[in-house]
């Protein structure tokens, strides 16, 4: 996934393209995240000014939602579902295996920026659990082998 480098200019552009919406802040933050790969601290005052909100308000929203990561992710993002349905079919064993094989703990990015491993809470794939999302691609019926394939893909 290629992302643009942060700039005030680009952030203003994103904001202005959403001004026609009612309650535009969440769509703007999603777009900022998609564009830069994260929601940079420096984007907050720009968005606040454009929307006529206080920095504190925008900061409060950014930090409330799990999706708005405030630091860049690794080049690959592996999200493993840790919700109840997946737990009931043994996802925790797979999580441990993934942590070991990728060399990072849940919620962390590897120091070389290769991969971020994150929990996700329910992809609605409960009938083919355990499930994961790798760089936006969903994978069901996860087992050790599938984790190994993911690790190989990340290492490539």
């Amino acid at each position: 996934m290629r992302h643009e480098t942060f700039s005030n200019e680009r952030t203003r552009e994103i904001v202005s393209s959403h001004l026609g919406l009612e309650g535009p802040l969440l769509p703007i933050l999603h777009a900022v995240r998609e564009t830069f790969g994260y929601v940079p601290e420096a984007a907050v005052p720009v968005i606040a000014e454009e929307l006529n909100l206080s920095r504190a308000e925008v900061h409060g929203v950014v930090t409330f939602y799990h999706d708005f990561n405030r630091a860049p992710h690794g080049r690959h993002v592996v999200k493993i579902c840790r919700a109840e349905a997946c737990q009931s079919v043994g996802v925790e064993t797979l999580v441990a295996h993934a942590e070991r094989s990728l060399g990072v703990s849940m919620g962390e990015t590897s120091p070389d920026g290769r991969v971020t491993l994150e929990p996700i809470y329910c992809l609605g794939l409960c009938a083919c659990a355990p499930a994961a999302m790798v760089d936006g691609r969903i994978i069901g019926r996860l087992d050790m082998e599938a984790i190994d394939e993911i690790v190989a893909e990340v290492d490539r």
């Binding site: 309650g23 802040l25 409330f64």
Partner: peptide
């Protein structure tokens, strides 16, 4: 945006308005 509580109807409305849920 990944907040479980936003399934509750009033926090969902807050979220739609662009606020914390």
């Amino acid at each position: 945006a990944g907040a479980y509580v936003c399934g509750e109807e009033t926090s969902l409305l807050e979220s739609l308005e662009g606020k914390r849920g």
